[in-house]
């Protein structure tokens, strides 16, 4: 267990660094996507300019309490990232993230417009699509490393019963779980072909789903919450490489680039395709991996 001072410093670093990194990532995302579409694209810092501009706008709502849900979505997303980067229990991190996601969805339901209602329903289907593999990730990492503690996994913990060569790098024991999680990442990062609830591509939809009725500072908050979330999602990828951090960093970069490529070459699919394929991937690769791992005793 860390001392409280140590935890506090980590929390502070995370609170400041995560949105900066997330915003930059969003900028890079837009630049690279533009290049893939033979455009020049906006400046690297455009996401920050966008958020600043949104912040200065007048708050407009349909239902007077709709923004409260978004405030708690924001707080809980930040809290979840804090839990993760302080190295606490991975299952709790996942549960907390689910809770924050639910606040987002409830906010959209509360807004009571047909477009945000459809967006909320679709977001909910997305959550249902990726939830199994996210939980299986925790299960798999626990089987490989013998712990749910993020700190211990980063420290290179490995399960004494599964002490194969390279056991301190969990991904070597969990290739299937990793592949299935990558598939789910496409959903979690809100990328095509699974950007059903709200797309950031103008050509995908005429009215923006889940965020239709959110504007001004609230929309800015949603944006920043996503930056926090994205940084943590990359942290999950990193986690698969245990104490081998150079490999982890490379994996994060490769993953993000891969997500962008898929985003730009795929059109949006219908929800049954997403749900079936995500659960199928979870079952075949994710659970298949767990079966193999349980036989390795």
């Amino acid at each position: 267990m860390n001392s409280w001072g140590h935890v506090l410093i980590r929390v502070l670093i995370y609170l400041v660094a995560a949105p900066l990194l997330g915003g930059l990532l969003a900028g890079i995302d837009r630049r690279i996507s533009a290049r893939m579409q033979s455009r020049v694209g906006p400046p690297l810092l455009q996401p920050f300019y966008d958020v600043a501009k949104l912040w200065s706008k007048e708050p407009i709502v349909v239902r007077r309490s709709q923004n409260f849900y978004i405030i708690f979505f924001f707080l809980l997303t930040v809290f979840t990232g804090g839990l993760f980067f302080c190295g606490s229990d991975l299952l709790l991190v996942f549960f907390a993230l689910t809770l924050s996601g639910i606040f987002f969805i409830l906010g959209a339901y509360k807004a009571s417009s047909p477009y945000s209602f459809v967006g909320a329903s679709r977001e909910l289907i997305q959550v249902m699509a990726y939830e199994p593999i996210v939980l299986l990730t925790a299960v798999g990492l626990y089987m490989a490393t013998g712990t749910f503690q993020v700190d211990a996994i980063w420290g290179g913990a490995f399960h004494p019963l599964k002490a194969l060569p390279g056991a301190h790098i969990p991904v070597l024991l969990l290739p299937g779980v990793f592949v299935a999680l990558l598939y789910a990442m496409e959903i979690k990062f809100r990328k095509s072909p699974f950007d059903l609830a709200a797309s950031h591509h103008a050509h995908q939809e005429l009215v923006r789903g889940i965020t239709t009725e959110f504007s001004g500072p609230t929309l800015a908050m949603i944006e920043v919450a996503h930056w926090y979330e994205n940084v943590m999602l990359l942290g999950w990828i990193f986690l698969f490489f245990g104490s081998c951090w150079p490999a982890g960093l490379i994996a994060c970069a490769v993953t993000y680039f891969l997500l962008l490529v898929v985003d730009n070459v795929c059109a949006r699919v219908k929800w049954p395709v997403m749900l079936r394929s995500a659960w199928g991937m979870t079952l075949v690769f994710g659970f298949g991996n767990i079966v193999v791992l349980s036989l390795l005793k």
């Binding site: 639910i102 249902m128 939830e131 199994p132 939980l135 299960v139 079952l283 767990i290």
Partner: peptide
């Protein structure tokens, strides 16, 4: 560990 299959899919549906 194999029974975790039921739990992870079931929890998603519950949600």
């Amino acid at each position: 560990p194999l029974l975790s299959f039921f739990i992870v899919f079931g929890s998603a549906a519950t949600l």
